[in-house]
Design a protein around this nucleic acid. Sequence first.
DNA 1: CGTGGAGTTGAGTTTGGTCAATATGCGTGG
DNA 2: CCACGCATATTGACCAAACTCAACTCCACG
Lengths: 241, 241
Amino acid sequence: MHDLMAITLERLDGASVDDRAALAALIGDARVVFEGRVLLEEGSRPHVSMILLKGFVARASILNEGGRQISGLNVPGDFVDLHSLLLKKMDHSLVALTDVVVAAVSHADLRRICEARPQLMRALWRETVIDGAINREWLLALGRRPAAERLAHLFCELYVRLKAVGLAGDYRFDLPLTQSDAADMVGISTVHVNRSLKTLRQEGLLEWKGGEAMIHDWRNLARIAQFDPTYLQARLTTSWA
Amino acid sequence: MHDLMAITLERLDGASVDDRAALAALIGDARVVFEGRVLLEEGSRPHVSMILLKGFVARASILNEGGRQISGLNVPGDFVDLHSLLLKKMDHSLVALTDVVVAAVSHADLRRICEARPQLMRALWRETVIDGAINREWLLALGRRPAAERLAHLFCELYVRLKAVGLAGDYRFDLPLTQSDAADMVGISTVHVNRSLKTLRQEGLLEWKGGEAMIHDWRNLARIAQFDPTYLQARLTTSWA
DNA sequence: CGTGGAGTTGAGTTTGGTCAATATGCGTGG
DNA sequence: CCACGCATATTGACCAAACTCAACTCCACG
């Protein structure tokens, strides 16, 4: 878990060792939030941002009719709500999909350090821009891909993202979420998630049970999902200068 | 059109008069791009960002099977691809949906000015974060709203955004796009756009013909779309400090 | 054991997609 | 000014994907 803090800082591309150390000094104590709890309520005006050290956090919006759409998923190593530094009022909620460990950084501190360290500010900016790229990819999936392919794409993305923080490997990773969570991410019904997963399973592409995902046939899974990790690798490879 | 440049600078919240002037000095000559042309190709590595002064630009991704999804729409007054400053490689294309006028700012200049003027950098960061908020709202629509409501939401959003830059008023605005463009924004087929528009028209909510949109019943349109402009007004009202 | 939450499955319905025909509107060349 | 041709809009008939409702299974946990 301490590793994860290091990884989070590590990938702040373009920030100096000094910058990272300064930011690290601002990070508060880790806090546990239990599954199902809301970290930040829609409409609230947070004064801290958080680094996710363990578990999964979703940005969720509730529709009037009771439906829920998850517009983003954070994995350990992510800054979960950097954008709230710039946008005062939350336009969605942050929900713990599993038991979760987060460490807070106050906005006041962030503002100070950003003004003093442009390289660091730019690195944080970049994090939010990458979130945006992931978002666009989800949008693309929701708009133009059938259910099974959306799920396939989600598993591809999660594998790459989790692998990048050492939480996946050998084509497997822990994913202790429900099918209903997945449904709210890919914009289909729970029942249809179930059926689509069955298809993927029968095609020998992947399995997801007992909270663990196993990708049996990466090549074909990525193919049907038209998964191109460019939008994610940005997080690992691109540099400013 | 000169107004629009001013508006673009104006809404850089938190930037000083000095900051704005410095940025203004970096803006290159306006350039016309004709309808259908690609401003930035997916996979390219742009070295400029652009301010949109006239017309509509879409961020579009093409699927293997020939489908297209528009993951964002820019209106006059928008910075169209600020994020490319942080992410070297375009993961989607920028397409002119109408004849368009843009003014470029080089990334090199932007980087320089950002390092020198943290307030300005933060304001630009904020622009990209607002783009992200709009994106989430679209995601929500694609995931959980039926076709007619998606369109209703799109019209509500466009009205508010265009009004903010003086290009709408009295519940009407120019929208010289095709139904096919709309289809690619809301993730349904062209035919279904047509049918859904018919429904909205018959319910007396709006009309869209001859390139002009007229909202006849804002209250009910916003109601069925569950349109809450908070995510947009951020662009006008929130401040940093 | 029994209870509750999640997963699975079937039956029937709804929404939206596809294909194809027709209509409308506008710009160009005669 | 008119006829033609192209692009867009509109409509109908049919099809497919996904949804809803409801039953039933499978576990984990007390």
